Lab assay of single mutants.
Amino acid sequence: MASQGTKRSYEQMETDGERQNATEIRASVGKMIGGIGRFYIQMCTELKLSDYEGRLIQNSLTIERMVLSAFDERRNKYLEEHPSAGKDPKKTGGPIYRRVNGKWMRELILYDKEEIRRIWRQANNGDDATAGLTHMMIWHSNLNDATYQRTRALVRTGMDPRMCSLMQGSTLPRRSGAAGAAVKGVGTMVMELVRMIKRGINDRNFWRGENGRKTRIAYERMCNILKGKFQTAAQKAMMDQVRESRNPGNAEFEDLTFLARSALILRGSVAHKSCLPACVYGPAVASGYDFEREGYSLVGIDPFRLLQNSQVYSLIRPNENPAHKSQLVWMACHSAAFEDLRVLSFIKGTKVLPRGKLSTRGVQIASNENMETMESSTLELRSRYWAIRTRSGGNTNQQRASAGQISIQPTFSVQRNLPFDRTTIMAAFNGNTEGRTSDMRTEIIRMMESARPEDVSFQGRGVFELSDEKAASPIVPSFDMSNEGSYFFGDNAEEYDN
C-alpha cells in the first residue's frame, strides 16, 4: 500500500469516517454492505422474486439502478423543472426478469421514488447511507470498465484509444464523492478537466460571474484530485501550473494530454476495490451473516471469500459463452479491467482472455432483445487465490505491452514486471518541450526514458491461498515475461453508450 500519510484510507472515504482504527473501519464497511443486503432482500420480497430470480444479476442491476435514481437529487430536480413526455419524475423502474413456464419473461416495473427511498433508509437504520449508494455506483463503473473500451470518449477529448488503461471510473457520476474520486484513473480526471476547458473556450461566460466562481472551485478541486494521483514531483508541479492558470485554454489542454500520456509509464495511484452486485450481499445477509459484527474490507480476502460461497446467475444470449460472461463479471467484481492478464489468470486459476476474444456482450439486456431465446446460467466467480488490492500504480518500471492497449494499471499487489510499449508511448511525445512547463516536461520525458521494462514492481508481494486469511504465506508467482498482458488488445469491444 502506498503510505497513507495525511490521506484517509478508502474504507474511511467509503464510510465518510473520520480517523478510525482498522477494526472500526471493518465494522463501518460491514455496516454499509449489510445495509445493501437488507435493502436487496426487501426489494425481492416487494417484487415477489423467487430465490433464483433474486440471484439473477440482471435483476440486481435494475434494483441497484432504481435506488441510485431515487437518490439522484440533481436529476430529480431537473426532471421536475423540465417535464418530458412519458417520463414521470417521481417514478423509477426498469426490467425485471421472471421464469414463467420454463421461459424467461421481461416485466417492466415502476415504483415511486419516495417508496424506494423509504425501503433503502429502513434497511440502513434510517440513514441515507450515501456510502452504500456510492458502492453500487463503483460496481456499475467497474462493470462498464470491463465491458467497454471507451474509444470515442478518448478520441473526443484528444487522447489515444490505446490509453484505455487510464480510464478507470470514466462512467462514474460526478456525485460519487471521495470514494469515487479515489477509483478514477488519470485519464478519467484528464477527460473531465478537458471537457471543462473546452467549454470555457467555447463559452465566454463559463468562468464568469457567480456560476463561474463555482465552476472555478470545481476545476481547482479536480486538479488537486489529479495532482494527488501522480507520484513524481515534476508531474505534480505541472498540475500546479494547470490549476493556477488564470484562464484555462489550449496550453492547459496540451499540458493535460501530455500528463495523461506520461501516466502510461509514470503511473498514478488509483484505488481498486472489489464492489459486488447487491444480489451477492442480499443472500449472505439472508443466511444470517452479520457483516457489521464480522467486519468487512473491500481490499482484502473478504470479497473473494464471499464470491467463493455465492451463487449468481445471468441471462445468456443464444451465441454467448457462459464462461466468457463469467470472466467479464469476475473482472468487474475485482475492479480488474486494466490489470495484467498474466496476473489475473494466476489468481483466477483459469486463463483470462483479452476482451476481443470473449464471445459475450454486456450483462444488460436491451429492451428490444428477444426473450424467447434467452437461457440462463451460473456465473463462475470463484478464484484459485486471493491478493491484496493496490492503491498505487506500482513502481515506475515497465515491460512490453500489446498493440491495442499500451500499458496497464495494476489492481493487485503482486510481484511482476509491468508491461508497456515504450516505443509507441515515446513516439507520441513530439519533443515539444517549450513553453512555461518546459523544464517539467524535459524531466518527465527523462524519467520515462530511463524506466526499464525488466524491473520488478511490488517486490516480494504474492497471492494467498483462500485458507490464508491473515495473509501469512505469500506465494510469489513467476510470469512468462514475453507473454501478452493487455485486456483490450487489438480490440473490438462495443462502445459504451450512456
Rank of each mutant, 00 (worst) to 15 (best):
S345R: 09
T188N: 04
I138M: 11
A271C: 08
N144L: 14
V312W: 11
S141R: 02
Q235N: 03
R150I: 09
S176Y: 11
R106A: 01
D480C: 05
R293N: 10
L264K: 03
I36R: 01
A260L: 00
E495C: 04
A260M: 07
A153L: 07
N250Y: 08
N211W: 03
G200P: 02
S359D: 13
I225F: 12
R293F: 08
D497V: 11
T45R: 01
F258K: 05
K7W: 03
L344Q: 04
A153S: 15
S274P: 06
I316C: 15
A129T: 14
Q20C: 14
R461V: 00
R446H: 03
R391L: 09
R175F: 09
S165H: 01
T350N: 03
I57G: 01
K325R: 09
M238D: 08
L172E: 06
V183E: 00
D203T: 01
N309V: 13
V280Y: 01
T411H: 06
T188H: 11
E81G: 06
A263T: 12
S478Q: 07
I425F: 09
K348N: 12
G490K: 08
R150C: 05
Q4H: 09
G93Q: 06
S28M: 14
S413P: 11
G300C: 09
L133Q: 14
R55S: 08
G94K: 05
S377T: 14
S28F: 09
R19M: 07
V67I: 14
A131S: 12
Y496P: 01
I347S: 06
N395L: 05
M426I: 08
M13Q: 13
A123R: 07
T23V: 13
G282N: 00
I408T: 15
D290S: 08
M163L: 15
H272E: 01
P161W: 02
I388E: 03
G462M: 03
V29H: 02
Y40V: 00
M374N: 05
G431L: 13
N397C: 03
A286Q: 07
P173C: 01
E495L: 10
V456S: 15
K229S: 06
V190Q: 01
F346N: 02
G132Y: 05
Q405D: 00
H135F: 03
Y10A: 11
E320C: 06
